[in-house]
């Protein structure tokens, strides 16, 4: 009796070796990344120029353009965000931002800006920032031009609608600094 019981138990015990011994996980497709930010400045005559900032971009890899603009001039600025995994997989993030316009706001900071105005708004009449109007000043040294995209900002916060990021709270989705040179 004693030995048969022990043997049975050992048999049950050893049977567990027959478990899964290998795995074949699938790579994860990162669909929420932003890899490219494109700025398009258009002057009053309709002349436009574009600048790129890329990190781990499927086409450009890492790339940082230096913005070149004229001093004391007014530009309309359009910002585009992309997730570029490869030449064939290019997702525009602007559509997602527009769909949830109430939950997004872009802030622009640079000492080369003389005046700034949001040119778009969400359903509650608060700014989004994909389209803005900018007047440059006459600071000619090499400076920074910072773009911040905040998810779920407190748009009602003090001066948040006037491009004041400090009181916006929320979570930062994009925070990059281009170099800028005025001529």
């Amino acid at each position: 009796m004693k030995y048969t019981t022990t043997q049975t138990l050992l048999l049950i015990f050893s049977s567990v070796i027959l478990l899964q011994c290998t795995k074949q996980p699938l790579p994860i497709n990162e669909n929420e990344l932003i890899t490219r930010v494109q700025l398009t400045f258009t002057d009053t005559l309709g002349e436009s120029s574009s600048f790129l900032y890329c990190i781990n971009d499927g086409i450009f890899g890492n790339k940082k353009d230096t913005i070149s603009l004229m001093k004391n001039k007014t530009y309309s600025l359009e910002i585009s965000f992309y997730n570029v995994q490869s030449a064939s997989v290019v997702d525009s993030i602007n559509n997602e931002i527009l769909e949830e316009a109430e939950e997004h706001q872009i802030f622009i900071q640079s000492i080369t800006i003389d005046s700034f105005k949001y040119m778009d708004e969400d359903n509650n009449a608060y700014p989004i920032g994909l389209k803005t109007l900018i007047k440059t000043n006459n600071i000619l040294s090499l400076e920074y031009f910072r773009i911040i995209l905040i998810h779920q900002p407190n748009k009602k916060g003090l001066a948040v609608a006037q491009n004041q990021v400090k009181n916006a709270g929320g979570a930062t989705d994009v925070d990059i600094s281009f170099l800028i040179k005025l001529h």
Binding site: F13, V16, I17, L19, Q20, C21, T22, K23, P25, L26, P27, I28, N29, E30, N31, E32
Partner: peptide, 25 residues
Amino acid sequence: GLIYQYKNNTNDPNTGIIPIIPDYL
């Protein structure tokens, strides 16, 4: 006593985010 233990950790690939720890056995 004798002890045998087996663990199998799987990440769902549909999260769209690289998991903080990998799959393992």
